Amino acid sequence: MTTPEPQPAQAPEQKPAFILYMDGPEYDEGLHRLTLWVRHLLLPVYGREVTSGAEWCSSWWKHPEAVAQFYGLWMAWQELTGPESGATGPSTWHRDHLTHILASLRDPSGPFSGCKPGRHRAKQPPEMDPFPS
């Protein structure tokens, strides 16, 4: 009976960090890459006309919710449309990610409510009572 040769330890696969866990230069670089994807792919292909029923903010990166949702959408895009993805990856991305994210962001009561093209309106998050200790 032979014993198997010891295998060298492999480092765990490095997964991309979600943008809400980034700060400083790492956040700035992540946001920069995201804005390129939104500007050059997402908006030209999927950016529909702005209406009162489909709000938009041309300074969307000032909305933390939009940044988080677009970044998640972008991460899913990379996983489901890359060279290693299966043939149904793009369809899955459209069905499970794109439709829901855009509907949520562009909803009349969503994060862009009150924004107009070229005019950002900052939103205040709701307050929360202190948790009793």
Rank of each mutant, 00 (worst) to 15 (best):
A68P: 00
T81P: 11
M22Q: 15
P8I: 10
H63Q: 05
P8F: 10
F70I: 04
G53Q: 15
G72E: 04
L98Y: 12
W77D: 06
L102C: 10
C115S: 02
S91W: 08
Q14N: 05
A122S: 15
L34A: 01
G110W: 03
L98S: 08
W61Y: 14
F70T: 03
S85M: 07
A68V: 05
E13Q: 06
P16I: 00
F70C: 04
F70W: 00
L36A: 15
A68Q: 07
V38Q: 04
W56S: 03
P132R: 09
Q10K: 09
F112Q: 03
S58D: 13
K116L: 15
L98H: 09
W37P: 11
W93G: 15
W37N: 13
P12E: 11
F112Y: 07
E13N: 02
P25F: 03
T3V: 13
Y46I: 01
W74V: 00
E29R: 12
S133M: 12
Q14D: 07
L41I: 14
H120K: 10
Q124C: 02
G110L: 02
L105T: 00
R121S: 11
P90S: 12
G30T: 01
V45S: 05
P126M: 11
S104V: 02
T3F: 13
F131P: 05
E127H: 15
Q7C: 09
Q7P: 02
D129C: 08
H32F: 03
I101G: 06
G86M: 01
L105N: 02
G86D: 12
A76T: 03
T88E: 14
Q78L: 14
P6D: 08
W77I: 02
S58Q: 06
R48H: 10
S58Y: 00
K62W: 06
S109E: 13
V67Y: 01
A54G: 01
Q69P: 01
D28G: 01
R48E: 15
Y27T: 01
E29M: 05
P12C: 10
A66F: 06
G82H: 12
P6I: 07
F18A: 08
E5G: 08
W37Y: 14
M128C: 12
G114S: 07
P6C: 07
H120C: 10
E127D: 15
H40E: 15
P126L: 12
V45F: 04
P108L: 04
G47M: 05
L34E: 01
T99D: 10
H32L: 08
V38D: 05
Q69T: 03
L41Q: 14
T3G: 10
S59D: 13
D96T: 02
Y27I: 01
E5A: 15
Q7Y: 01
Q10W: 00
F70G: 02
E65V: 10
W60Y: 04
G118P: 06
L20P: 00
E29G: 04
L31E: 10
P126S: 13
P44I: 03
K62R: 14
S109Y: 10
L105Q: 00
S85Q: 09
G89C: 09
R119T: 12
W93L: 14
G86A: 11
K62N: 13
